[in-house]
Amino acid sequence: MTDLNLGIVLVSEVLIYPGLMFLVATIIFTQWLWRKIAARLGFRRGPMKTGPAGVLQPMADLLKLLSKEEVRTALSSKRLPALIAPLGIGALSTVLLTTPLAPLPIWSPFDSLVVLYLILWATVSIVILALSTPNPYTNIGVGRYLAFIVAAEPPFFISVLVPIILASRYYSDVNYSIYKTSLYSSSLWGLNPLTATLMLLSAFSGFISMMAVMNIKPFDAAEAETEIYWGIFTEFGGPRLALGMFISFAERVVLPLIYTFLFLGGSSPFTFTDNYLASLITTLIKFFVIFSILAIIDTLMPRFRPDQAVRFLIKYALTTAVIALIASITLTFIY
């Protein structure tokens, strides 16, 4: 394959599948699913009008917001939101290239650090996006969001690192790569009692901290509608709101997908190289199960106070993640 052809393949992957267009399609479907689950649990019917069973309602909402006049306050930044939001979305959809979903996945030793860095871009872009439009409620929302991020990102990153460290310990070709770990993650549960325990601990802390990173109840005090209007999104409307929600929804697709690959075995029992379609369907089924659980929790749970949420994250997520990390690092030094 020549460099030009390789470039074309990579750009088409990042723009179409499994990049941007795939992400948009998945967001549309998952948001419809989220609304339907939330509606059913509240004895409502959910989206009905647009498309079959209302499945195109999220797309209609997106188009409506994008087509509105851009209104901003006199104090808000003019160009920054429009520049920073696409960077967050771009980072999240590029992460999908490092998963086995990509027809030509790209990876390198220690790529996990680059992927975690890109995931952090999305979080930072939400903060910058919100701060570019000053408002008392926005500031309270951003302060709470930052507190959650400081409490939730370290356990989430540590939880992601545990299977990567374990896979690198037992499989010589993994070399701390998130892509390679995705291929071996299912076997880590059955290797021995120690790896199973460490996977259990990291899966537990990873799930809790992932919820906090994605602003899912009970960790959604940053956008608590009844207290601080919409918190981080208070001043947003039209295209800015569309881009802000785009990042938020993209996180709700990319992070559960990474969780599926690292903790639920990804496409196991199939492999993408042998049977791509069966692997894709298996991965998506696991992803939708995780996504539905998140939607049910978000609908049924009440909201934590910010200090309660921080305390919960430190107590339940950080301690378990740190124990799993220390044990997995210890294991790498024992041959």
Binding site: L6, L10, V11, V14, L15, G19, L20, P86, L87, I89, G90, A91, S93, T94, L97, T98, P103, L104, P105, I106, W107, S108, P109, F110, D111, V114, L118, W121, Y179, F272, T273
Partner: peptide
């Protein structure tokens, strides 16, 4: 079925693709 790169090239490629996507 995969493209293995060195870590510096990988970081460069991923950053470029992120910017293209953005």
């Amino acid at each position: 079925n995969e493209l293995q790169l060195t870590v510096d090239i990988y970081a460069l490629v991923i950053t470029t693709l992120t910017l293209v996507n953005a």
